[in-house]
Amino acid sequence: MKERTYEKYFRQNRLPHIWCPGCGNGIAMKAIVLAVEKQKLPRDKTIIVSGIGCSSRASGYMDFDTLHTAHGRAIPFATGIKLANPELNVIVITGDGDCTAIGGNHFIHGARRNIDLTVVLFNNTIYGMTGGQASPMTPLHKKATTAPYGSVDRPFDACKLAQAAGASYVARSTAFHVQHLTSMIAEGIACKGFSFIEALVQCPTAYGRKNKMPDPSEMMKWMRDNAVMKAAWDKLPEDKRTDKFPIGVFHEQQTVEYTKAYREVIELAQGGRK
């Protein structure tokens, strides 16, 4: 067999991972290491930080310096790492609950500061780890243990949220579109500012089984059939958009990056002294 060079980024003795059969997290994790390889990030200058959730367990399988932190708090930990050593490439792995429920405030403020992190949200639209409670990204009328008749809470569009809060780079892809997802993450890594990539992933166990889609392949076919590339989406009439969703780069605008701005404060405070 030809060598799969990305395998060096996995902690071989930890595989197979703990995720359920067909869980999309494994696909998103591979897309991240492929993107790291594509951008030639040195392994000893790359840090993976995650919160809590099925998705956040990814850090345990990745052979970098990794931090598995507290629920919702991956971005604050990552902010500390980046400020202490701005040379490091810091990648955050988070879930829809982790990032937009308990960690929602940290998320918007990370974007507002425009600190140079690459945040990859594994969006399975549910609290997977705790058995399927609705998250702020559960689609309308979909079922969860906490929404047995379907959710009536309007979901967040985390991409729009990131953009409005000030992120430099915002994109979305899915576990079906592996190569596209990889390039969305790679572009996010290249962007010097707060980069946010939403990766739609299937959770057959906690979400699929409750919503008449227990087969992971069916969930991925749903992604294939309903994701629309941004250019085509922009031309799609409103009445044809029902159940469909856009993927691609939604926003790219580099403004002052936080560690740079902070460096100036340090220099000012030191009055030119070393």
Partner: peptide
Amino acid sequence: TEILLKSERCKGCGICVSFC
């Protein structure tokens, strides 16, 4: 072609079967 299976990693999800 050469197909290599690492069965100790396989969880039988059927995704490969569906998309082949």
